[in-house]
């Protein structure tokens, strides 16, 4: 445990110096601050912020995570010759990646909201869920980045795969679901569509928030089915737990590969 804290500490010191983390923080600050000032309507601010979170957090987490792991290759090789467990090394690296990302998001998006806190008093439930979704997406895509870059020795291949994973889950997946719904519209597809949205963490984050907002126009097909199938609060509960699986499963496989890896 002590060793884990020490490794995380050295990694945090290293990431903290990176200019990308600062840019990421400033980005969230500028977007949130700008939205509040343009609209002055908290529900619109939160909906737009949700859409920004759903696109930007997965992208930045997976790309930054992949670059981070390849950049730390020497470091990992160096430390693995020390009396340290591979699991500890893995966890230290992971904390060193996700903690700054989560902190950037909370500080960047949180500061403007705190400044205008009277506007958001009624929306505290949604705010907490929004924060939760942002944190979960960072943790999930951090795991996916670890899985991809541990599995692939080749930097370019790993980088390409990471971008592909993001593109697949955030853009192509929706198209695929639409395609299936359209072509098989004569069949009952409720269960299928629920299964399909459980297989996409970004969709899960979106559904969790949309169910809380209770805006049917923005639910989309899967959101509406979720709402009908489980009802509001059950839907939120199930989609949150499913997001947890999206951390556990990729992390299990990433760690398994890391333990077997030859340095």
């Amino acid at each position: 445990m002590k060793e884990l804290l020490k490794i995380s500490k050295y990694q945090l010191n290293d990431v903290r110096r990176s200019k990308w983390i600062i840019i990421y923080t400033l980005f969230f600050f500028a977007v949130t601050y700008g939205l509040i000032n343009f609209t002055k309507e908290p529900s619109k601010v939160l909906i737009t912020l949700l859409n920004v979170i759903l696109i930007i957090i997965p992208l930045v987490s997976i790309i930054f995570g992949t670059v981070y792991l390849y950049n730390n290759k020497n470091n990992i090789t160096f430390l693995s010759a020390q009396p340290l467990k591979r699991e500890v090394l893995f966890a230290g690296m992971y904390i060193g990646l996700v903690l700054p990302l989560v902190a950037s998001f909370i500080v960047g998006a949180g500061l403007p909201i705190i400044i205008y806190i009277p506007l958001f008093i009624e929306y505290s439930g949604i705010l907490i869920l929004l924060l939760f979704a942002g944190i979960m997406l960072t943790l999930i895509f951090g795991c996916l980045a670890f899985y991809v870059s541990i599995k692939n020795e080749d930097k370019l291949k790993g980088f390409g795969l990471s971008i592909f994973v993001w593109l697949l889950l955030s853009v192509l997946y929706d198209g695929l679901v639409m395609f299936i719904m359209y072509n098989f519209s004569e069949y009952p597809l409720e269960e299928t569509s629920i299964a399909l949205s459980l297989l996409n963490p970004i969709d899960l984050a979106r559904i969790t928030l949309i169910l809380k907002f209770d805006i049917s126009a923005l639910m989309g097909y899967t959101g509406a089915v979720f709402n009908n199938f489980f009802g509001g609060s059950w839907g939120i509960y199930i989609s949150s737990v499913s997001m947890l699986f999206w951390i556990i499963v990729p992390m299990y496989f990433a760690l398994r590969n890391f333990r077997k890896k030859d340095f």
Partner: peptide
Amino acid sequence: NGDCNYRSKIGYMPQAPSFPEN
């Protein structure tokens, strides 16, 4: 068998040095 403490008895100089570069 996966325990790492024995490595504290060993000093290792790898062929190609790899360090925390910063």
